[in-house]
Amino acid sequence: MSEITPDLVRHLGVLARIQLTDDEVERLTGQLDVIVDNIAKVSEVATPDVVATSHPIAMQNVLREDVPDDLLTVDEVLQNAPDAADSRFRVTAILGEEQ
């Protein structure tokens, strides 16, 4: 059993600048006690020979090789553009005159 006491919870509340009611102190004392006990259990089995992991199964890259395929021509790319000029998309200026 850990050493989470109502006085400790009240002290933590003061440090966090959280005003706690007596009911909240009682509830948080039990909850924090369970959390600290569970962390202690995990610490017991976490040994140096057990490698830390973020996933239980080894991850691998599932993406295919990036190889160029049939490319679109400039005309095909621009055919649905609202406005185009000189083989480029034409857009409204977004910067003011001062820039």
Rank of each mutant, 00 (worst) to 15 (best):
82 P>C: 10
44 E>N: 05
69 D>Q: 10
80 N>P: 02
33 D>M: 10
83 D>A: 13
2 S>W: 01
30 G>T: 13
34 V>F: 08
12 L>F: 07
93 A>Y: 00
86 D>C: 08
18 I>R: 13
97 E>W: 02
13 G>S: 08
59 M>E: 10
78 L>Q: 05
88 R>W: 04
13 G>V: 05
92 T>W: 00
38 N>F: 05
85 A>F: 02
91 V>R: 03
71 L>E: 15
51 V>D: 06
88 R>E: 14
49 D>G: 07
84 A>C: 08
93 A>E: 10
22 D>I: 00
42 V>H: 04
73 T>S: 15
54 S>L: 10
60 Q>I: 02
66 D>Y: 06
34 V>Y: 10
51 V>C: 01
40 A>H: 02
11 H>V: 03
92 T>H: 02
87 S>Q: 01
5 T>P: 03
27 R>Q: 12
67 V>K: 12
63 L>H: 09
11 H>Q: 14
31 Q>H: 09
83 D>V: 02
32 L>E: 07
32 L>N: 11
43 S>K: 04
72 L>Q: 08
29 T>Q: 14
1 M>E: 15
57 I>V: 15
14 V>Y: 03
68 P>E: 14
98 E>G: 13
98 E>W: 05
56 P>K: 04
2 S>Y: 02
20 L>F: 06
70 D>W: 00
24 E>Y: 01
18 I>N: 10
68 P>C: 12
99 Q>E: 15
36 V>P: 03
82 P>L: 09
16 A>V: 04
3 E>C: 04
81 A>T: 05
90 R>C: 07
68 P>H: 09
26 E>P: 01
71 L>K: 10
39 I>F: 06
72 L>G: 03
17 R>I: 01
90 R>F: 01
66 D>L: 11
65 E>M: 05
40 A>K: 06
44 E>T: 08
86 D>H: 13
72 L>H: 02
81 A>Q: 03
84 A>F: 02
9 V>P: 13
15 L>P: 04
60 Q>D: 11
19 Q>H: 08
67 V>N: 08
70 D>M: 01
37 D>K: 15
12 L>E: 11
68 P>T: 14
83 D>I: 00
75 D>C: 01
94 I>F: 05
81 A>N: 05
28 L>N: 14
60 Q>M: 05
57 I>M: 09
18 I>S: 10
94 I>M: 09
93 A>G: 12
58 A>Y: 08
28 L>E: 13
55 H>V: 07
9 V>W: 10
23 D>L: 04
76 E>P: 12
95 L>F: 08
78 L>V: 07
75 D>G: 09
74 V>P: 04
77 V>C: 02
31 Q>T: 14
19 Q>V: 09
30 G>H: 09
24 E>I: 02
30 G>Y: 04
88 R>L: 11
86 D>N: 15
89 F>T: 06
15 L>Q: 15
88 R>F: 07
10 R>T: 12
51 V>G: 05
91 V>Q: 03
70 D>R: 06
63 L>P: 06
73 T>I: 03
51 V>E: 07
90 R>L: 13
99 Q>V: 14
63 L>N: 14
53 T>H: 08
18 I>Y: 05
72 L>P: 07
28 L>R: 14
99 Q>S: 15
33 D>W: 04
3 E>G: 11
1 M>K: 13
60 Q>N: 07
46 A>T: 02
80 N>T: 12
49 D>S: 12
